[in-house]
Design a protein around this nucleic acid. Sequence first.
DNA 1: CCAACGATTCGCT
DNA 2: GCGAATCGTTGGC
Length: 203
Amino acid sequence: MRIPYAELRRSLGISDLNLDLLRCDALGLAPLLIGAELLIDGVGGIIVETEAYLLDDPASHSYRGRTPANDAMFGPPGRAYVYRSYGLHWCFNIVASGCGAVLIRALAPTHGIDLMAARRETSVNLCSGPGRLTQALAITGALNGHRLDLPPFSLSPRTGDPSIIAGPRIGISKAVTYPWRFGMVGSPFLSRPFDREADRRTR
DNA sequence: CCAACGATTCGCT
DNA sequence: GCGAATCGTTGGC
């Protein structure tokens, strides 16, 4: 008797996304995460903007080798890499295969909007930007290295097939031309617009 | 040891 | 569009 592979995965509680988390490098995973649902303690939404950072990538924290600060990027894929930015904000990444990571830059809020607004002390731009997103979801360095398939995290694969646009990454000074920022076409929750419709991908 | 610098955000012009 | 806030990490001497 032959069991369909997809059904077998479901029965084992293994989603496409969970498999891909363990298999993909950051450049493969970043567009795949567009449309996925990210929750922390039931609060969060739909990922609409990501950036890929690879080992062989001058803009990546892993580029200059393993240190205590970037240790999570060198660990198993499917975990969180959380770091402090500008001494003020936290940024949340999903570790991919190959010592890279995907920076989660924006969500479309769907769950716990009132709580996010309370944490942010505003009702606008709740999750549009990497620092705003971690504030709204209460992500701190305490979650660095934490598995994403266990509480408080919940990461679910997308159900649809969104149009995805690519463009240069934001706020970096090296490798500035690599088009490794990905966004959901038409989302009002992007941290910044993408420049050119010509960069559109579909996937 | 010390100086410089961010994978940012916010407020003001 | 510009500059301040703020601090751990990094790189140079």
